[in-house]
Design a protein around this nucleic acid. Structure first.
Lengths: 211, 211, 211, 211
DNA sequence: TATGAATGAGGTTTCATTCAT
DNA sequence: GATGAATGAAACCTCATTCAT
């Protein structure tokens, strides 16, 4: 109240929040332009920092990318595992919930940008590819695989290859995200929830032990 | 002896084959390094041409990419359509054959490189994204959609959203390709044929009208 | 106990010793990396100060260099003059003592670093070159020149060009220092004292009036 | 004749001479500004080339330096050795001729720039220091050492440490060069030839076996 | 007095593209 | 048709220096 003349120091002394601000800016910039075409200066500008300022917090452009991946990756993996593990005694229901969670994730263009970037730089930064694979993909896959195996063991699901089943869960959602977000493909008339339902209807019918 | 006047022309007129040789080289180079990191000089070297020589056949680096996409794209789309259309009266069998064809395609790392590159430059070259979407993705999707719809009409398949079903066909195969080729993920123990079978088993069970 | 109000001042008022600490640090850093490659931050770190702290005491990087030269230079010149002047009545003995003193000086890599730095920045900072020349070189030379001239006047030395003689005293010692310290040349088997002796033996035999 | 309008193609097609032109330009630029302060762009400009053009012939700024050292070094070493070796049967005369040759060398500011540069970057590029030491200094020294030893063996010179004697030959000349060229010290009234004479007079008197 | 945070200016290097031959 | 030579434009990164606290 009354101190309206000093609303915001505008900058200074926010070292703690800087790395995150830079990563936020980088995510947006990399998503828009791709890693190579993105200029560090643009990241800096969006983070309201000078170019040199960025280098106070990250050693190099690819260190920013690494930081970004590391920050973005953990929650995704954690999220998927949690949903999967929470439903081990109701595999069919859990499958639907995982599909819904993954759909929500993929619907967020910013979140989907990360695997796209990883994919495009994987050849040059194998460590990034490896990190992503081990910390997201294998985590997610193994969680679903466990879920499917549990379902099979319970007799809820027919015997099947759980890796294939897992890909049948994630694959369609992921490609739909790429198609609509990055290639501007027509998302179709269904709402996300309807898509999840249509998808899991078919998938579960394919998986469930008859009667 | 005596043919001293015609020792060996310094260069040969092979203008006709040149563009293709350049595109071959570009495909390999782009696949390895990504579009941005790939240097025109490397493409030239691999095509056994000077850097300037490349510019006799292509106006710019992204023109090469456009040429590449145009060349690679048509056969893929045509192929998938053909398989799908040839099986309109046996939708289930056709589905399996499409899955097999698409698996074969995706197994070829070079072929899979094209969509990966498209994805990574889509933001900067919207025309490329559009071209790819219209000429490959929508072609492929619509062919499968038609197939599914035919199946539903015939009563072979249950009523379902054909777009979703199509993504359930392509998605798992595509992500498996990305995962194994570009992120060096474990391809798992199944042979391609076994993967196709496991995949279509589940998918068809999910789609087929009971009884 | 009980002195909680004075636990430890975060920083101490040691303004007086600071400039010297900075110069010490600068000497080491400049010696190791050269003036250009040395970073102010490294000087600061070695002086246990923040980068900004250095600027409390010196206006700029080259001001540090100037300060360094000023501090290092006076004692050297004074020392050489003193030795020379103390021996005006025994020119031959004084020559030997000057050689010994200069050898001791040059043996100290840190001390030798100063002229090396001066030499490398002389073109950009003519004032530094001038300062060094006037306050060290000309001082040292003139002292020796006076010594030689005294010797000649006394009849102890043959008539000779005293500037040349002076260079014959300093030159060999100086280049030996450069060679061994900065180019890692083999210092040879002789001890410093033996080098001084061998050197002055020849030099004196060359200078002394026969009989 | 009559084609006065096309005097000089101005550039193009002189790849062969380029490296040398660049090294010439670099020598001048490095001599003037020192290695660090010299900008590649200035070297380029002086060589009448674009900045990028320089990189067609040299991989990096320090590659230019290396090239420069390599080019400048061989003739110097060869020259000194030749003079020394040509006079093995007249050591005293040869010593004078070596002194004269070295004086001529050092009188050339451009030539003297090389060791100055080497000295200033030695810490950062140890290979350059080593190269210079092995290919110039040790060559020169060993040639003179051999000469002195020959003189001693012949009974022309008194027994003495030849390394010291060699430094007494080179040292004074070298420091005089540094002093006058780079610190703008007063070269004194003597002509180069007179300096050589004054120098070798003393040195030879110091070295020669009496009668 | 002391410093963490910030930046402007500039340097090296790269590369798509052009052009004379 | 083919290329060696050349360059403009830009990108990454560094560092001396400043300033609010």
């Amino acid at each position: 109240m009354g101190q309206s003349a000093r609303e915001e120091p505008k900058w200074r002394r926010r070292a703690e929040s800087r790395p995150d601000e830079i990563l936020d800016a980088a995510l947006v910039t990399f998503e828009k332009d791709g890693f190579d075409a993105a200029r560090v200066e643009d990241v800096a500008k969006k983070a309201k920092l000078s170019k040199a300022g960025v280098y106070l917090y990250f050693d190099s452009k690819d260190a920013i990318l690494r930081g970004l991946i590391e920050r973005e990756v953990a929650p995704v993996a954690r999220n998927l595992r949690a949903v999967a593990e929470a439903g081990m005694d109701d595999p069919a229901g859990a499958l639907q919930r995982v599909a819904a969670a993954f759909t929500a994730l993929v619907n967020d263009k910013r979140k989907l940008a990360v695997p796209r970037i990883v994919l495009s730089v994987a050849a040059r930064y194998p460590d990034i590819a490896q990190y992503y694979r081990e910390n997201v993909l294998e985590q997610g896959l193994s969680a679903i695989v466990a879920l499917i195996e549990a379902g099979v063991a319970k007799g809820v699901f027919r015997p099947c290859d759980p890796g294939i089943a897992a890909r049948m869960l994630f694959g369609p959602i992921f490609v739909h995200g790429l198609y609509t977000h990055f290639l501007h493909g027509d998302p179709g008339p269904l709402s996300p929830a309807e898509r999840v339902k249509a998808h899991t209807d078919i998938l579960l019918k394919g998986l469930l032990a008859s009667r």
